[in-house]
Design a protein around this nucleic acid. Structure first.
Lengths: 219, 219
DNA sequence: GACCGTACTCGTACAGCGTAAGAATGTCAA
DNA sequence: TTGACATTCTTACGCTGTACGAGTACGGTC
């Protein structure tokens, strides 16, 4: 039963569905999701396009697969009694989705639900004493914030390092008397090149969590 | 032979950029955004694909244009003193984006900001006494909820009328002891064919608005 | 009439996309 | 050696956006 296959004879590392997916994630991260084509992905793997179809039914399966890869990086809320574990989990989701800026919109349009994560979040709320009704409302409020905010920020951050310059130029051409608040917004937000620390995401998150807390205490 | 009023050579109404965009919106509404191709849109207008390029630089301009058409349907918050005008405006945005389920994700990826709406929302918060900082936070929290929730719901509602059956079958195959809360969630949400009235959207919206209110009163 | 500029529409072509069909190649067991 | 099977590649098809240039219609002017 000695494995006779000598890797030296065939320099290519063995292909696999997992290897395809990992390469797809890397390609999407580095070159954008629009660069993820069957031919380009195949070239990346040193192979022809049709070879991929031996490991994957079609491109949709690749898209679903890389969404799963990314989703598995998200930290689920712990099982303990503290329902504010959701806070950590939400921040984790935001961070992961910002590392893979193409993932959020794919995740929303994915036909296949992430049951494990959903179960963990719902259970966390339920154990904290929320009613079924309130649990569902809370779940959607949280998920909406994560997705909405992340999608917005990911759209902004397409060209992160030259954003201050872009904002400055935009500001110069903006008719200020017509859009004074927009001008103010851009100024405080973008022109000074502050590192994004997630505080904006957390503001909205805490708005929701504190609101839920209050509802829970009232009931 | 009088060829003048031959039905095959029907009198085409005059083409225009606006007519192209309106047809594009209708096509996307009726057949999905993925059906919006230059050739199909042209056929819809009784014309060849390349004709469209006389009115529009490229397809991206069409996509930007139809986003603007949809955005203009959204009711901006009124200029008055009541900052909860934002509530009406947010609900309007949600309704409009649900009428055009392809629009939300396009709007998020659009490179061109909707200054008028942004100015109205920011001004509304500012006039209510929020600090610049808080205004920006509130703006993003609201916008995130609108976009995140609408995108989620639009993804769900792809095949609205047969959703209860789908949910029932999904539920039948779901390992209940493994995902009890998910099962509960699906049951209360989908199996009974309740008309969606927007109450879920408004729950999260009010969580945010009430949270902002409290912050305003504290300061 | 003839001529011409302008506005508009279309035919053709090309590179790139996902992928169906099947041939070619490599590897192992009998 | 033969045959079965796993893996990869070649070719081709219909679709996409769109570059390029050739029509076509319709005013003026001479």
């Amino acid at each position: 039963m000695a494995v006779q296959t000598e890797p030296s004879r065939r320099p290519r590392s063995p292909m696999s569905r997992e290897r395809v997916l990992r390469a797809a994630v890397r390609l999407a991260d580095e070159a954008g999701i629009e660069s993820l084509t069957m031919r380009r992905l195949a070239k990346e793997l040193g192979v022809e396009a049709m070879t991929l179809y031996y490991y994957v039914a079609n491109k949709d399966e690749i898209l679903g697969g890389i969404v799963d890869v990314v989703a598995s990086e998200i930290e689920a809320p712990a099982d303990g009694p503290d329902w504010k574990e959701l806070r950590k989990s939400a921040i984790s989701a935001h961070e992961v989705l910002m590392r893979h800026r193409w993932a959020a919109s794919l995740m929303l349009s994915s036909r296949h639900p992430r049951l494990g994560h959903m179960e963990a979040v719902l259970g966390c709320l339920r154990r904290a004493g929320f009613s079924a009704e309130m649990t569902h409302h809370g779940y959607h409020a949280l998920e909406s914030h994560i997705m909405g905010f992340t999608l917005w920020l990911a759209g902004m951050a397409l060209d992160a390092e030259k954003l201050p310059d872009l904002a400055a130029e935009f500001l110069r051409e903006l008719p200020r008397q017509e859009f004074p608040h927009v001008a103010e917004h851009i100024e405080t937000h973008f022109v000074k090149p502050t590192e994004y620390t997630g505080s904006e995401f957390e503001f909205g998150l805490d708005l929701i969590l504190d609101g839920l807390e209050r509802i829970r205490e009232e009931s």
